[in-house]
Design a protein around this nucleic acid. Sequence first.
DNA 1: TTGACATGCAACCATTTGGTTGCATATAAT
DNA 2: ATTATATGCAACCAAATGGTTGCATGTCAA
Lengths: 109, 109
Amino acid sequence: MVTHDDKVFKALADASRRQLLDRLRKKNGLTLSELCDGHDMSRQAVTKHLVLLEEANLVTTAKQGREKLHYLNPVPINEIYTRWIGKFERKQVQALHNLKQALEESNDD
Amino acid sequence: MVTHDDKVFKALADASRRQLLDRLRKKNGLTLSELCDGHDMSRQAVTKHLVLLEEANLVTTAKQGREKLHYLNPVPINEIYTRWIGKFERKQVQALHNLKQALEESNDD
DNA sequence: TTGACATGCAACCATTTGGTTGCATATAAT
DNA sequence: ATTATATGCAACCAAATGGTTGCATGTCAA
């Protein structure tokens, strides 16, 4: 079964796709051609990446004349953070807390 | 180039690996056999997943007798959050802020 | 010491992934 | 009307991924 979360994680697993998201974060509403500039691969390859990002709901598109505009949707990223990553962060905070306690206790020697 | 972040993202991209991390989060120091229980795949397949998690520094291992113990390291997860995901979260907060402003302005009609 | 258990290692396999090229179509500009 | 630009679609391909099986090795227990 491919869950929604799984699509997001898999979409984020590729450096080229993360770079595309990064560029949309800096400047939203870029066209396909604009997104292709500076990416060392064919337009069709970029399109494939964008389709995956769309399927993960990380990017929304709107056609304007002959151009296709791309918009970042950061919501799914936030979702996997709150629903998954956050649990591990809290674990780390707790681990640091435990370490701090251990260090303080070792000072009692 | 395969960066450190890239290894972490790719390690998290597989549901089975996320499940393994989840189990270590709930109970740290599990052996390989214990981690295999409840996973519908061969021991060797689980080993491969654990190797990837180790290479991403998400799991640390220690051999004790004939058993191999596995420990969760949540630090890399926190790193990709602060260095990458957080930027998108702030974006979302800002978007919500903008939406709120827009709604309030529309109330002036 | 013999057998059972826990793990390691390697070969192999099907599917997915990430890319390519070629061609078609729709829109804008001259 | 013609040409250039922006995008869509499909076939193809190599490499990576996620799994398998078979066998070897190290360690604990009877």
